[in-house]
Amino acid sequence: MKRWFAAVVLGLSLAGVAHAAIDTYEFAKEGDRERFRELTKGFRCLMCQNQDIADSNSPIAADLRKEVFRMLGEGKDNRQIIDFMVERYGDFVRYKPPLNAKTAVLWLGPSALLLGGFGVIMLVVRRRGRRTEMPDCLSIDETRRLDQLLDKHQR
């Protein structure tokens, strides 16, 4: 009995997920369907932030998909749709924002951090190498004492 109850509860909980993000759009041309797919893969979900709007289940992603579909139906080209979304939500809505003064940190930041990390590693390695080296200049007394110690040790 407990197994049947668990199965029913699990089935009912999964029933809501099964139809959550299924959008059906009718396109006049097959090219529009491919453009829709390309555009929705290129926009970031503002709620999820790590998913594109094509794959996101959030309500705002569904609204953005409807907006892209509407603009495709109005005959707008990709550039006009992208410009509208950027104007409304900023460059953050794009997965690959253009390189400009506002987005330079997004493009150059990871490389700068990587180069900085390599620089720190090189500095640490060089400093450790210097610590293990024997000093080149010994005084005359230190040289005699070292020779005596080495002679005793070898006998």
Results as ranks from 00 to 15, higher is better:
146 L>G: 06
94 R>Y: 02
126 R>S: 11
76 K>C: 05
75 G>L: 07
3 R>P: 00
62 A>G: 09
53 I>M: 05
65 R>S: 04
41 K>L: 14
87 E>Q: 09
72 L>K: 04
141 D>F: 13
148 Q>Y: 10
129 G>I: 01
10 L>G: 04
106 L>W: 13
36 F>M: 04
102 K>L: 07
69 F>A: 09
43 F>C: 05
77 D>E: 10
80 Q>M: 12
68 V>I: 14
115 L>D: 00
145 R>E: 14
119 G>Y: 10
131 R>D: 09
13 S>G: 04
88 R>G: 00
114 L>D: 01
62 A>H: 10
78 N>H: 08
95 Y>S: 02
48 C>W: 04
147 D>W: 12
118 F>D: 00
69 F>I: 00
10 L>C: 06
124 V>T: 07
42 G>D: 15
115 L>S: 03
19 H>E: 13
4 W>N: 10
104 A>L: 05
154 Q>M: 14
21 A>I: 05
45 C>D: 13
11 G>M: 07
37 R>Q: 14
96 K>G: 01
144 R>Y: 14
18 A>K: 14
5 F>L: 12
58 S>L: 08
63 D>H: 06
92 F>W: 06
75 G>S: 08
118 F>G: 04
50 N>T: 11
1 M>P: 07
82 I>K: 08
102 K>M: 05
74 E>T: 08
138 L>D: 09
44 R>T: 10
134 M>D: 11
25 Y>R: 10
115 L>E: 02
124 V>H: 07
68 V>C: 01
14 L>E: 12
139 S>W: 09
38 E>A: 15
80 Q>L: 09
5 F>Y: 12
76 K>S: 04
44 R>M: 13
91 D>S: 11
100 N>P: 03
60 I>A: 03
91 D>I: 01
115 L>K: 02
87 E>S: 10
17 V>L: 15
118 F>K: 02
18 A>D: 12
68 V>W: 01
106 L>Q: 08
9 V>F: 10
153 H>V: 12
75 G>H: 11
155 R>K: 15
9 V>M: 08
103 T>A: 01
96 K>Y: 12
57 N>G: 06
141 D>Y: 11
65 R>C: 02
38 E>Y: 15
152 K>Y: 15
130 R>Y: 11
91 D>T: 12
